[in-house]
Amino acid sequence: MRMIIHDLDEDFNERLKTKSEEVIWADGKYAPCQGCFNCWTKNPATCSLKDSLHEMCRVVGQADDVVIITENCYGEYSQAVKNILDRTIGVSTPMSTYRGGEMHHTLRYGKKGKLKVIVYGDVSDNEKATWKLMTERNRINHGYQLKELVFVDSIADLEVSKI
């Protein structure tokens, strides 16, 4: 199953829903991660904060391919999207292992297919380089086999059919 996580407006949210089986709207109406690790050590795959992201890692865990549409924030995801990523580390387990000669967590939901990241807004060359590195690190950490990174200048250029 392919999942789209995006920080666009409601109108776009509706249009995306016609395109993908599962759309997660990063509307920012949730709290940031508190760093407690309870989603690993107390109630696995469940966040201690009881808002809309309470069980989000279970939802994201079901996806094979994930598309993230985000505004650029210094070469990092927008706050609303990053908040979802931080609150869903329960997609891995607390156990560590080697992957690609580096330390990483083992994956609760196993290997994934493709991670596609679409970045919109004004992105400098430095930020593009950061995005390349960032998405590659995310790909390895989350166990995706493939990765695609796309930059679009404005949301208007974003064609729902091409996502």
């Binding site: 940031p32 991660c33 760093g35 924030c73 210094y74 990092e76 995801y77 927008s78 706050q79 990053k82 908040n83 990523l85 931080d86 580390i89 960032m134 690190r137 995310n138 950490n141």
Partner: peptide, 10 residues
């Protein structure tokens, strides 16, 4: 956090 800056810092 997840290879980057924690969301509340952004």
């Amino acid at each position: 956090y997840v290879d980057g800056v924690p969301s509340h810092v952004l």
